[in-house]
Structures are given as structure tokens and as C-alpha cells.
Amino acid sequence: MAAHVNEVVLPGDILQELSDSEQYPKLRLGPGLRIDVDNVVVCKCGILRFREPSVFWVDTHQKRYVPVKGENILGIVISKAGDVFKVDIGSSEMATLSYLAFEGATKRNRPNVQIGDLIYGKLLVANKDMEPEIVCIDSTGRSSGLGVISGGFMFKCSLGLVRKIVSPDCQLMKLLGKHMPYETAVGLNGRIWIKAKTLSHTIAISNAVCCAEYMSKKQTEVMVKQIVSSQWT
């Protein structure tokens, strides 16, 4: 394993060990790293991460979303323009959403989408030269959980926190769910939607999630316990 893993790296740092091709024949670079001539150069400040066999990326604190193809995101419908909706997904440009990209939608049978609705969708097109496009169906035409979301509450948080929450070793959501049942949709664009039974549950969950960004496993457990105990007293 390379020397700088789990350490802070800064833009312009050259990772010498990764640059030697013998050690990692199939090197995979994630966000925050790029190849400049023969060197692997850091282009974001954050913590260098590594996963077997040879995947490297930089964990950063970031709030502005850059669309990535295939990611699930939460957006707000801003306008209807002909046969597409314009959806705000927090990126520099609005995403488009075709009215045919819903389960069971045909030219006759239009989906019921209003301005201001929340959309849980998947990015179909995301590259720097085109405006992003989202869909609410998978390749087989099923919604598979995507679509218009009603009720509940959505809040914004940093992209790092969202990634932490969706990672399989984060117990926070499960722990909270044991005590307060709730529905959730996590958008990788830094938006989380939550729908719990009562108002106070929703507020508690949203605050717990926001606070958990830099907490260790132990700390999250303690926090959840605190919330739950204050709940029943």
C-alpha cells in the first residue's frame, strides 16, 4: 500500500509510488486524482483513500455537485418546457427529464409532475459538454424506486456526508431506523429526503444525519442512544 494513504493531500502533490507502473499494473484513479504526463497528480484537497486491489481516490469536503453518470440524485422540478422538465439537481446547469422517462408513461399517458415536485432520478447523461439528463426508470422500463416523491422533508448536506451514509459500513441510518421507522431517499448530489411518522422524528433524524459527518462509529452509536433516550422520557 502506498505511503500517503489516509493522509491529507493537497492539489499539486505528486504521488510518486502510484506513478511507477510496475507496482500497480491496473491502477484505477477516482475523483481528485489525475494523470499528468507520467505522474499521478492530486487535484483536490482531502484525504487519500485506497481500496484493494489498486483503486485510489481523494475524499474531499465539497458542497457543489458535479454530475456523474449513473448516480442517483434528488432534484426539484423548476419548469415544464414542452416534453421535458427542467430539474434543479444542484449542479451548475439544470438537468432535463423527459416525460417519457417514467414507468408506464406513453405519449398519451403523461406522468403527473408539477413544478416544485421532488424527483428521485438517475443520471443518464453527465458529461462536461452537455446538459445532464436524468431518468426515473431503469433499462427494463421499471421505476425501481425512482420517480416523484411526495411528503416528507428534504435537506441539503455536504457530498462527503452523503457518500458516507450510502457506504455499506455506515450504521447510522440502520440504527436510527430501529427506533424510529422512516422512509428515506439519498441523493448523491448532497440531498437527503426523509419521511418519518411524526414531525419531531423527522427533525431528529435530519439533525442526527447532519451532525454525523465526522463522527466515528462509536460516536454515532452514542448519539443515536441519546436521541432515543430523550425520545422516551
Binding site: 411524526t198 419531531s200 447532519c210 451532525c211 448519539m223 430523550s230 425520545q231 422520557t233
Partner: peptide, 12 residues
Amino acid sequence: LKRDVTEVDVSD
């Protein structure tokens, strides 16, 4: 940049 923990009253 860590957010300060806020006391949340979750009781009903």
C-alpha cells in the same frame, strides 16, 4: 467545518 451538535428536543 464540522457542524456543532445542536440540542434537539425530540420529545412529543
